[in-house]
């Protein structure tokens, strides 16, 4: 029982990271129908900026977060304008935007590689007061606990905002049909840039926390989560914010259970069997948000 609790908590910690990554990624995907793989690079750069601020200027983690979110958000907005925007009117917009975004991913990761000189760095010790907590039989660090609370809180806020605010309504209108939205007087460009900013800011925040909690700053940090985030999205339901949370947590917990109860070597098999199973049986995921209507 104690072991089960411990592995469940471990799974929730891991899953909340996946969820935070997947929800930012999925936000762009759902509202603009863009497979924006450069999101991975924006995530990496979030970690790099956080690392730079903490090492060079000696800031504590909490102070860097707003700056990192702003920087990553703006980087993602720049990605929208330089990589995506000019392609949206094309007949093959989805494919063109994916490939362009992939080009952006390659460039951003490579620049990070040169900057870090190919090395794996870590956040300086003491940027966040990390100490082990023992809650009954369960061990968790203060940082991990903070991460879970922040992730779930932010995703809930995002889901609420999408459903109940004017901005959320505008995003959903643009998601349904860009042309109609523009006829309705919505500034589609502004909404799109806003979505990219929010998505990038989420990625930056997640990256700063991940880099601190897991002691890794490297050029491939974001790319490492790309495939697992895709899995979380498939399981949770393409493009649903709540789905990203559910999918992320499910994958996180499934992988720690596989590690804890089967054998650590089965972890990836379990995760990908889950993924394949959803693709075959329920390709729309747990949270089926929108039917694929043909538009004529």
């Amino acid at each position: 029982m104690d072991f089960w609790l411990q592995q469940t908590v471990n799974g929730i910690v891991l899953g909340s990271v996946y969820a935070l990554y997947a929800s930012g990624f999925g936000l762009v995907m759902a509202s603009l129908r863009i497979f924006h793989v450069a999101h991975a690079a924006v995530f990496t750069w979030g970690a790099v900026v956080a690392w730079d601020l903490t090492t060079r200027l000696g800031w504590p983690l909490v102070a860097t977060l707003p700056v990192v979110m702003l920087a990553a958000g703006l980087l993602n907005v720049a990605a929208y304008f330089l990589l995506i925007r000019h392609l949206l009117k094309r007949q093959d917009a989805e494919l063109a935007a994916f490939i362009s975004s992939m080009g952006g991913l390659i460039i951003l990761v490579e620049v990070a590689h040169h900057l870090l000189d190919g090395a794996v760095e870590r956040m300086p010790a003491g940027v966040f007061p990390v100490s082990p907590l023992e809650l009954g039989p369960v061990r968790i660090t203060t940082l991990h606990a903070t991460m879970v609370v922040v992730s779930i809180g932010l995703i809930a806020l995002l889901a609420w905002g999408m459903a109940h605010t004017q901005a959320g309504r505008e995003v959903r209108t643009v998601a349904a049909d860009r042309e109609t939205a523009s006829l309705l007087g919505i500034n589609v460009d502004r909404v799109s840039a806003g979505v990219f900013f929010a998505s990038g800011a989420l990625a930056g925040l997640a990256a700063a926390m991940v880099a601190t909690a897991f002691n890794v700053v490297s050029a491939d940090l974001g790319s490492g989560y790309l495939v697992i985030a895709l899995a979380a999205m498939v399981v949770g339901g393409f493009g649903s914010v709540a789905g990203a949370l559910a999918g992320g947590l499910l994958i996180g917990v499934a992988s720690t259970y596989a590690t804890g109860y089967l054998d650590s070597s089965y972890r990836d098999l379990v995760v990908f069997a889950l993924l394949l199973g959803f693709l075959v049986v329920r390709p729309t995921g747990l949270f089926h948000t929108r039917s694929e209507l043909a538009r004529v």
């Binding site: 910690v13 909690a213 720690t256 054998d263 990836d268």
Partner: peptide, 18 residues
């Protein structure tokens, strides 16, 4: 006890718990 991880892993709490 033999715990397998992937070269890209960053979170090890599950194997450490094991």
């Amino acid at each position: 006890s033999r715990q397998e991880v992937a070269s890209t892993d960053t979170d090890f709490s599950a194997v450490l718990a094991n």
